[in-house]
Amino acid sequence: MFPATFEYYAPTSLEEALNLLRQNPEAKVLAGGHSLIPAMKLRLATPPALVDLRRIPGLSGIRLEGDQLVIGAMTTYYDVQTSELVRQHVPVLAEATDVVGDLQVRNWGTVGGSLAHSDPAGDYPAIILALGAEVRARGPQGERTIPIDQFFVGMFTTALQPGEILTEVRIPVMGPGTGAAYVKFPHPASRYAVVGVCAVVGREDNICRQARIAVTGATLYATRATAAEQALQGQTLNADTIRAAAERAPEGLTITGDRVFASEEYRTHLVRVLTRRALMAAVEKIR
């Protein structure tokens, strides 16, 4: 576990960080480091330089702006988990954080790191996707806002351009008549999601007005289960309609397995079961 040689930069402003990335196109951005550093120690990643964002002021913190909860990219899981604002306005995010990694991961890992990394089994990508958030990024061309539906484009690949830094995520606060839940089947070793499903349901007069369901773990990157969403749209919300919708969750998803713990077939089964459980729990939480 000895990484290859690399340069380490600790800029104190976003401008400085962007400049460093411009000067070192092969450099990697370091946030919490819980995905990048292990890869470097195994020498599976040998970036010539790291640009550490930790000393840049203003990149972490949680605030309410109108009907959006704004979370800075360098905010740790622990900060989210213990935030009263999060508990009040997007409770599912705080609840789901309980099952992210372990204590050390939650103390070091960051919201922005998790999203920008787009790990195929990460928890936050699915949750933030289901919540219909948007992501702000700063790059050489200035600042832009990326709707979350356009953000995850592949395994470990996002809409972020080279040299761009994710600065914050903006989540719509959950209004009355909405409920959300994240259900995770953790891998016994890594605690990554074998399958994780986040469901956000909007209800009016017991009719499903909106459902956003996002899957992680089974797919190459966090992906919406649109077939299940559509199946539920406009339906009366009950165990039968939810079951029927959940059955369709794998439709259109590229599901891959592994050869040790969970095959493609089994993960497909879990996508159905966990979608049903997430929807049931989400409906239960509607306030």
Binding site: H187, P188, A189, S190, V260, F261
Partner: peptide, 26 residues
């Protein structure tokens, strides 16, 4: 009984070479 296993593929490649893959009890 429940978690730990060293796994090789048919060609003898080790598939459980870290504690991310080899499931220690927790």
């Amino acid at each position: 009984a429940l978690w730990e296993q060293v796994v090789y593929d048919e060609q003898g490649n080790l598939l459980t070479g870290t504690w991310l893959d080899y499931a220690m009890p927790k």
